[in-house]
Amino acid sequence: MAVEMLSYIEKNSPVHRLSGATKLIVFLLWSSAAMLTYDTRVLLFLFVISITIFWLSKVALRDVAFVLIFILIFLLLNNIAIYLFSPQEGVSIYGTSHVLFEIAGRYNVTLEQLFYQFNITLKYFVVIPAALLFIVTTHPSEFAASLNRIGVSYKIAYAVSLALRYIPDIQRDFRTISQAQQARGIDLSRNEKFFTRIKNAISIILPLILSSLDRIEVISNAMELRGFGKKKKRTWYSAKPFRRSDYITIFVSVIIFILSVIITFYDGSRFYNPFL
């Protein structure tokens, strides 16, 4: 069960040196911009910047390759699904129809459809580097402090930190439990009857849940004994203080965000229409 999971990658780069809170803000602005806009020019511009920053971060492509391959497969399937369900979506959005070739019935290939699907894909490509970077360049320790800084209640921020802390432990429990149950003939993947498989799943999930509930008890006690929740605020050992580069980064991102929104909605439509 050596499934790879994405996690922090230690490097010394300008991106790594930024405070986690800055990266979180940029990531949120970036995602919002990419979600709102369908303007090809804006998307292309954001995409180029994304790639540049990715390059600046010194994160090697092969470190994240397993995730990228997964995303590419997802995007391919998604594109196929869109085409199958709605081959004329582009035509109805852009209002013209430049047919390249016919396939059958309403299934033809138009420039408009290609352009529309290109834009959808581009949207993902804008967000993916930003999200990836945020995950691999922010140390988990700093994560909770960053959330708290942008206004999330410290208790909820700490819950996120707890989740990150205990994922490996829970994974180990899960592994132990499923091995013990396999020895007794319980398996999820094999060609058992469907209902048996469900029953088997419960034999593994239930011990995991019950032992995790015990864990909640122990951890709550430990935190209570060490004064968690005593005050309305708390400080963070691992928070990175804001430096000039943080302020500059946030400022630039806000400008980019505002500009992309203005350009996008300037003519009253989220789409950039090259066919008019």
């Binding site: 208790k155 909820i156 700490y158 819950a159 996120v160 930190s161 707890l162 989740a163 990150l164 802390r165 205990y166 994922i167 432990d169 829970i170 995991l208 849940i209 995790s212 864990r215 909640i216 951890i219 709550s220 935190m223 968690f228 929740g229």
Partner: peptide, 10 residues
């Protein structure tokens, strides 16, 4: 708080 954290991990 702990239930949220551990719950999210599970």
């Amino acid at each position: 708080v702990v239930a949220i954290g551990i719950g999210a991990a599970v």
